[in-house]
């Protein structure tokens, strides 16, 4: 069953079309990668799913309900978590505070006035910190983390929300080979219980995690399938992978 079903999503900025009848169907408990050259509309698609931008036309069904046009926090509350392309953690808070902040089981400001201390979020914070390998860094300010650790912290922040669908925008960007391998492990574990949609340029990473791949080009779907199928697709090679002719790629 498709947890997320996008049909005919379009968006224009003046004369520029960024999304053009984009379709996507993400099956529950799978990891789908979204590929495509710069400007293909990957991040825009994520913006629309999470309510950051509004689509002109089309439909976004999440868990059977239309979420297009809902406010960001309402979409997040329905179970969609997002990791941004540029890691966005609160740098002057500690790792623990960042994770506690993301434990948004209670969002009512009046009730949160009377919540002191970590309380019942303790167990989940420890679990998530362990999972993303930051157990020993809980007391460190997020601004002092290495780039890879910052990426993990943001993955941890998304996990704290325990969303049904995790959107990950370039989670392995800037990671060392070793760090990326560890992230592959984390993702392969996550997809047993969660549904993931990942934008990533690192092909080794995609091969390591993807159950299915969607290639975008000029705001719509160019090809869909497993990574093996996609890599054989001539059209995809032509516009994106560019493994053929160098002159062609230029």
């Amino acid at each position: 069953m498709g947890l997320l079903k996008i049909t005919g999503l379009s968006k224009k900025y003046g004369a520029v079309t960024v999304l053009d009848g984009f379709n996507l169907d993400v099956t529950e408990c799978t990891l789908r990668c979204l590929l495509g050259p710069n400007g293909a509309g990957k991040t825009t698609a994520m913006d629309m799913i999470t309510g950051r931008q509004r689509a002109d036309t089309g439909s976004i069904l999440f868990d059977g309900h239309e979420i297009r046009g809902l406010r960001e926090d309402k979409i997040a509350r329905r179970g969609i978590g997002r990791k941004f392309q540029i890691p966005s953690v609160i740098r002057d808070l500690t790792v623990q505070e960042n994770l506690f902040l993301a434990a948004a089981d209670e969002v009512n400001p009046l009730r949160n006035m009377f919540r002191f201390g970590i309380g019942r979020a303790r167990g989940r914070i420890d679990y998530v910190a362990e999972l993303v390998g930051l157990k020993t860094r809980l007391a460190a300010a997020a601004g002092f983390l290495s780039h890879g650790e910052t990426q993990w912290l943001e993955i941890g922040i998304v996990l704290m929300q325990d969303p049904k669908l995790l959107l990950m925008d370039e989670p392995a960007a800037g990671m060392t080979e070793h760090e990326a391998e560890k992230t592959v492990e984390i993702f392969n574990m996550l997809k047993k219980t969660h549904t993931l949609l990942v934008v990533e340029h690192d092909m080794a990473f995609v091969r390591g995690v993807a159950d299915a791949v969607t290639v975008m080009h000029l705001g719509s779907v160019l090809a869909e399938g497993t990574m093996a199928e996609i890599e054989k697709n001539d059209e995809v090679r032509h516009v994106y992978l560019g493994t053929g002719d160098v002159a062609d790629a230029a």
Binding site: R82, S88, I90, F100, A104, V107, P109, N112, M113, I157
Partner: peptide, 24 residues
């Protein structure tokens, strides 16, 4: 000092991020 303060801190630093965590 409580969770309200933590959310307020997050809003001050990055209100957009805070929205995507589900806070109004």
């Amino acid at each position: 000092a409580g969770k309200f303060g933590l959310v307020t801190h997050a809003i001050r630093t990055d209100s957009e991020r805070t929205r995507f965590l589900g806070y109004n």
